[in-house]
Each structure stands twice: as C-alpha cells, then as structure tokens.
Design a protein around this nucleic acid. Structure first.
Lengths: 144, 144
DNA sequence: CCTCTAAATAGAAATGAATTCGTTTTAGAA
DNA sequence: TTCTAAAACGAATTCATTTCTATTTAGAGG
C-alpha cells in the first residue's frame, strides 16, 4: 500500500480504501489523462468486484479534494489526471496523446481581484487550459 | 428580418434561414447564457414546426463560426450566449443568474507562444473563464 | 421571376456517458 | 473485537445530445 496516497486520502478526510489507492496508483502511472471507463476496465482485473459507478464517484470526490485534476475536454467527456504539483498552476493538454504539461500560474489571481473590484461580483473558480498538440504529436500529425 | 444577423450569417458562409435568425434574435435579447432546450421551448411558438435537433445543430454551427459563444459549465450541459464584442477577450459567467461579463484579453497569447517554444508543441485553443457570482447574486446569496 | 440543387430541417429513434437507489460490505475509531 | 458511518455493488435508469432518412427550402444562376 502506497503510504503517500494513503496520507493524501486521510488529509482529504477520505478513507484509504484499496480501490481508492488502486485508482490513484493507476492514474499516477498513467502518462496523461484517462477516462473513468478506461480506468475501470484496467482495474477490474485487480478486484473480483468493482463497479463503474465506484470509479466515477471516487474520481469525482478525489478531484473535489484536489488530489486529482479534471480535464475540460472538447468532447465533453470526463477525464482525470494525477498531478503532483501542489502549487497553483495550469495545464497544457494534448488532444492527441493526452499528455499533460504544467504551466506556471500566470496573472489570473490579479485578474480575479480586478473583476471582483470592478463588477462587485465574487469569482469562485477559474478555468485556464491550453489545448493543442504536444511536441511529438505536432510533428507526426497524429490525431485520435 | 435583422440585417445585421443576416450579414453575420452570410459572412460565416451560412444561409440566413428564418430559424437561424430567430435563434440569434432570441439569444441577443437574452441577458445571459441559455440552453438549447430553453431556446427551443420559446422558439416553438414562432414556428409551426421546429425540431430540437435543429436548435442544437445551429447553436453548434454558430459557435463554430464565432457568431455565438459557448459556456463551459460545471454541470457539463451546453449553454450559449450572444456576445457582440468582436475583439479577442474572455468572460466572467455568473453561475446563479447566468449573466456574462467581458474580460479584456490578458497575456494568454504570450503564454501560448511561450508554451510552444518551450515544449515544441502547438497550442490549438485555450479556455479561460472565470466562474462565480455577479454583484447582485453575491449580495443576496441567490443560487439556482 | 422561374428552376434547380446543395444546404437545412423534421422528427422519431437511438445513443451512451453518467447517475440513482436500495442493499451489502468494510475501514477504522473506540 | 465491536460497531457504525462511509464506501461499494450493480442493475436499472436517466436524459441531454446525436443520428438517420425523408422532406423542405434558401438563394445562385439563368
């Protein structure tokens, strides 16, 4: 059992169940983002019983807790990835091979302040994501 | 018939059908973003026959052409809004009353260049959206 | 003003990702 | 070890969105 993941779960106020640990392990080993169904298909071998709803539920809870991140994908399906960078930052996601690269936080926090001040509203969250093709995929024009 | 919208459609290489014009009119009159089904329900009165798929199809085509914009909503349903600002910019969307406010473009273009240069990939698009509560909604704590 | 054709629409049916729900199992505190 | 709230099961369901084939129509070119 991976103590790092168990601690992360405990810190998030979640029980460290074998299935949650397996989800985290699998996603950490993943080079990019993955869909709930893909993860489920692979994890099924390791448990005699594992429901797809369990995978959905845990991925969502884990992303709520900040242990995982969610991709905003043009096809509007759910994808998650494991990102160990605990600083506030953003991502460049490859639409072809699914690789995820960190982008250091730019001036969004300042922008939030600005918007709040000027319009009187309250910014609850922001989305900043660059979509494209990573170096490798851009070269050989691959698409999936 | 609204000549502005007819021209916009022509410029986008799309036929100026009555239904497309009605969709644009209705969305322009809207104070915020709206869902395909909401628009359909209201537009049905003005046409003896109007299919929901037609509304979906047109909203998607219009947003592809840049005539309309799409909201990235946490509930993952589709919402569109009419934005006459033709400059490149971003939005603050209220999750409560659905108002949309413009945000002048920040340094994202520079960030795209940076990412391309450093990682060798190609940025095809970016998402920047601030989610929150507008002035009015933040005040009275309304939610919907 | 007609004609004609590619584009647009109808509308029923299908899709399928995501979720619900009542029951059973289990992690972990006491 | 006991006990309970949390987690998981999994079949069934939901419902927003899309597909498909037949029909209609906008608008270019006579």
């Amino acid at each position: 059992m991976d103590q790092r993941h168990a601690s992360a779960l405990k810190a998030a106020g979640m029980k460290a169940t074998p299935k949650r640990l397996a989800i985290l392990e699998m996603l950490e080993a993943e080079p990019g983002y993955a869909s709930p169904e893909e993860l489920w298909k692979r994890l099924k071998d390791r448990f005699d019983r594992l429901g797809l709803p369990t995978v959905y539920r845990n991925l969502e809870e884990l992303s709520q807790s900040g242990v995982l991140s969610k991709v905003i994908h043009p096809n509007r399906q759910l994808y998650y990835y494991f990102c160990s960078n605990r600083e506030h930052h953003h991502h460049f996601v490859c639409l072809s091979c699914r690789k995820v690269e960190d982008i250091p936080a730019c001036g969004i926090e300042a922008l939030e302040q600005e918007v709040s001040k000027r319009n009187g509203g309250k910014v609850l969250s922001h989305i900043l994501q660059l979509n494209g093709l990573c170096g490798g995929c851009a070269d050989n024009g691959e698409k999936r």
